[in-house]
Design a protein around this nucleic acid. Structure first.
Length: 305
DNA sequence: AAGACGAAAGTGGTTGA
DNA sequence: TCAACAACTTTCGTCTT
């Protein structure tokens, strides 16, 4: 049920794109990026994840060949207390039917939550791995996701969005530098949407998330730019000083980190261009210039770059 | 020719009436 | 719900190396 296309992957540049009808996904064979989902325009409910579930979940609307007679067709017990010939049913029998309907509903809800978890945890694992997050972080994220499910916060939201938001929240909570942009790239959820879902989670679960310390980004950016540890130390020192001066508040942490690194690299004779730094930090040169100007003024740096 | 600079206008999100 | 607002981006002309 798959077919290979030769298209370019926006993430890794790979040429093999797999069209997977079974899962309704369009994904890259090299990096696993899911480029599009639900390519058959089936609602998410009908996505099938293994042979066993396929048996259980087939229902009206799915092509006939996926169904077996009398299997999985009836999902509700109707409300009319009549037997199959239209005759009346005894009160005792009616009570029994009532209980059956009740339990049928409960079981359905339970299995839909389980199904949700199975899908979500798989997605969580995939995204977390792609981001290089350690197992204990995955565990925390999974726990948070379960909380979200328990509080019924996923209703009306794509599982993927909530998973991305949960991962972002955990990274924030644990001080792991991952931007929403990065998570957006590997999860295939738009950055805006991650932000929305994250804010919602934060409010509903009353998460106490600390502000991002720009210093968190320093080692990451520095290694992308091949800058040594001395430069990193310098950049962090600059950030600490700026923090004390009350700068930084309200500023994007990535921009601050980028500017500090830019200055530090110049101070240590390993100068990088604004463009290079801007690139890895995910901000523009203009932002670096603005932060750099502020830092220079407030810290009384007298360096020519 | 490339990098740095900064002004001006535009964007998307937050906040407060 | 709407408008004001701050941070950031885009774009562009100018200056510096």
């Amino acid at each position: 049920m798959t077919e290979v296309q030769t298209k370019k992957c926006p993430e890794c540049g790979g040429k093999r794109i797999i069209r997977d009808y079974e899962h309704g996904e369009l994904l890259c064979s090299d990096c696993g990026l899911i480029i599009a989902e639900n390519i058959q325009d089936l609602g998410p409910e009908w996505r099938v994840f293994d042979a066993e579930q396929k048996e259980k979940k087939a229902r009206g609307g799915v092509p006939i060949k996926y169904m077996r007679p009398n299997k999985g067709l009836v999902t509700e017990i109707d409300q009319y207390n009549k037997d199959s010939r239209g005759g009346k049913i005894s009160p005792k029998r009616q009570a029994q039917l009532y209980r059956m309907r009740k339990w049928h509903k409960r079981v359905s809800i339970a299995t839909s939550m389980e199904r949700n978890l199975v899908i979500a945890l798989a997605e969580l694992d995939r995204v977390a791995s792609a981001l290089g997050l350690p197992d204990n972080v995955k565990e925390s994220a999974a726990l948070l996701y379960r909380r979200a499910v328990k509080e019924e916060l996923i209703r009306g939201r794509l599982i993927e969005s909530v998973v991305a938001a949960v991962i972002y929240a955990i990274c924030r909570l644990q001080g792991i530098p991952r931007t929403r942009g990065e998570i957006a790239r590997v999860s295939g959820v738009e950055e805006k949407e991650i932000g929305r879902a994250y804010r919602f989670l934060k409010a509903e679960l009353k998460l106490d998330v600390p502000l991002i310390d720009p210093a968190q980004y320093v080692p990451k950016f520095a290694s992308s730019l091949h800058l040594g540890p001395e430069v990193q130390q310098e950049a962090i020192k600059l950030i600490r000083k700026a923090l004390k001066k009350g700068l930084i508040s309200g500023r994007g942490p990535a921009g601050v980190a980028a500017a500090a690194l830019y200055i530090a690299s110049a101070m240590h004779g390993e100068k990088k261009t604004q463009k290079e730094v801007a690139e890895v930090a995910g901000v523009t040169e203009v932002t670096i210039r603005n932060r750099y100007r502020e830092l220079k003024k407030e810290l009384g740096l007298k360096i020519n770059l």
